[in-house]
Design a protein around this nucleic acid. Structure first.
Lengths: 254, 254
DNA sequence: TGCTGGCCAACTGTCAACAGGCCGCACTCT
DNA sequence: AGAGTGCGGCCTGTTGACAGTTGGCCAGCA
């Protein structure tokens, strides 16, 4: 009965286009520096260019795309410094979140966090990399949720997208399998013990560790760019078609 | 000679429209909850609706507008909780910024910060409220700049816009004239002494003080909404014309 | 061979128009 | 009188088209 009357409030084309582009960026289908041709995307999605442009504007404001006048949109390419800055911001955000969570989280909230932690453990043991990353992100997001600060959650989500873009582009796998469990286990303990200082310390350590790992991957990947400025906003605009013409169907946000 | 060849790269209409709407929001011409009629704005600016829509999308992503399907864009109205969350975030950001600035700021950077501080003092003595607010914001922004973290600066700018919107809507004036100088003076001293803990403490105190002041204004303004949920996304869509049909010329970003 | 200048295709920025939903209002029926 | 219903205007969401610009390509020339 309730199926017959499914909500017909169709999601706007802008939202759908945004989610499609977003997904293409996070999974690394659209590579940094790559040019996005409006007409191409619109054609592939079967819509007109208007909604695609609006979606691109949204992502521009988020910092995932940059726009050059009369040239169009490009996937943002991270410089080394920008990755460092991002992780520094992430540390400050998540440390604040866990501090707030210590004093505000309910018992039920902590239990559900424990649930997520168990999921991380089981996924680690079964060696399922992609879901594991997802679960770790979910764990950290939960801490933001427990902080009770909606603005913090929104910011975390933005940062998480950029981080996962970086991870996927650099091909970073979650490091030694033992560590994340351990760290997140300590975090959980500190939260349960309502130990603000320890929780903050663990969180900071974790993020610095993650940062170091990512930066090492980055340097391994860009060994020569150490000395020179390397400051062409989109590094070689790469006029050309998108990489993978298939595999970009409609229907995010479901 | 160099004047004869001024850059003729005209700023895109989207950018100009965005800045116009932004200004209208920050100075309180567009009030929270107010509906923005695309055609109206486009007509007043002498352009078509397309760029206006894209500009609105930008501001939506920043959280300054909310969009309801088939209803259009509304100026975002802050709930009490959202203001608290915003200030909590601001504290975490600026404390992190001043900490980083302590260890990274150059002597020249500190001197220019001192310059800004003197400007605050002189404006306070002359009692020029609007420029004073501007100068205080500039002072705090400088600290973010001294932190050397570009991402932090971007986030500060976003937050600053929201804060100034709140201040202007609530009609908050900068409190007792003595305080800000005093606080920012201590901040400056701590930075010059490279005293990270003291700088962080002063910053946190300042922002908590500002928050308390704003919240008091808010509660004075919305005394009845304490108990009830008050959760209609845009509080009464207020179908109707914008408040001040004049005074919204083109040409932000100059 | 290397450089200059013009030509061309592609793509962006912008606009005007169309279809359809939402809101307010008047009208009708109970 | 009050509630429900149908109508009409206003406004959004989307589209297709047009003009202008950008960058690449190629011929011509030193």
């Amino acid at each position: 009965m309730q199926d017959t009357f499914k909500a017909l409030a169709t999601v706007s084309l802008v939202t759908q286009a945004r989610d499609c582009i977003l997904r293409a960026i996070t999974i690394g289908e659209f590579l940094p520096g790559q040019r996005l041709v409006e007409g191409e995307i619109a054609g592939r999605l079967g819509i007109s260019r208007g909604p695609v442009r609006e979606a691109a504007r949204l992502l521009e404001q988020r910092g995932l795309l940059v726009s050059l006048p009369r040239r169009g949109f490009f996937v943002r390419a991270f410089e080394e410094k920008e990755i460092e800055d991002l992780y520094e911001l992430r540390e400050c955000i998540e440390v604040a979140a866990v501090r707030a969570a210590v004093s505000r989280a309910s018992e039920a909230g902590l239990r559900s966090l424990g649930e997520r932690h168990r999921k991380i453990i089981s996924l680690t043991q079964r060696g399922r990399e992609p879901e594991l990353i997802e679960a770790i992100v979910a764990f950290h997001r939960s801490i933001c949720v427990l902080s009770g600060n909606g603005r913090l959650i929104r910011l975390f989500d933005e940062i998480a997208i950029e981080v996962s873009q970086i991870l996927s582009v650099l091909g970073v796998a979650v490091g030694d399998p033992g560590r994340p469990i351990e760290v997140q286990g300590s975090l959980l303990e500190a939260l349960e013990a309502r130990d603000s200082r320890r929780a903050a310390r663990e969180m900071a350590h974790f993020i610095r560790h993650a940062k170091a790992e990512v930066m090492e991957h980055y340097r391994r990947r860009h060994p020569l760019e150490d000395g020179r400025p390397t400051q062409s906003p989109p590094p070689r605009p790469a006029r050309g078609q998108v990489r993978n013409p298939a595999n970009m169907k409609m229907g995010g946000q479901q």
